[in-house]
Amino acid sequence: MADQILMVAVLISLLSIGVILIRFILGPSVLDRVVAFDTAGIIAISVIVLLAHMLERFIYVDVALVYGLLSFIGVLVVARYHERGL
């Protein structure tokens, strides 16, 4: 029972990533797309944590940690570049 609920949770998260990608493709300005990219990245971190549970491997949480640090740096770089050219 718990596994089915977690499966539904993963599917809802993937659906929200899909909805966000619509905003990524539509988004009128660059910064709209940056926001969409940031949000999709954080939801993807949660998807990785959920997959770590479903595949029963503790080591997969490390991938989520690494991505959690680096997506932040990516968003900072893009926003600063857009503001005044790095």
Partner: peptide, 20 residues
Amino acid sequence: TMAVLAAGATGLFASILFVM
């Protein structure tokens, strides 16, 4: 700029695929 961001998103989803 958009091309670079989209390449980053490709890397993100590819890393989820590698996890799976």
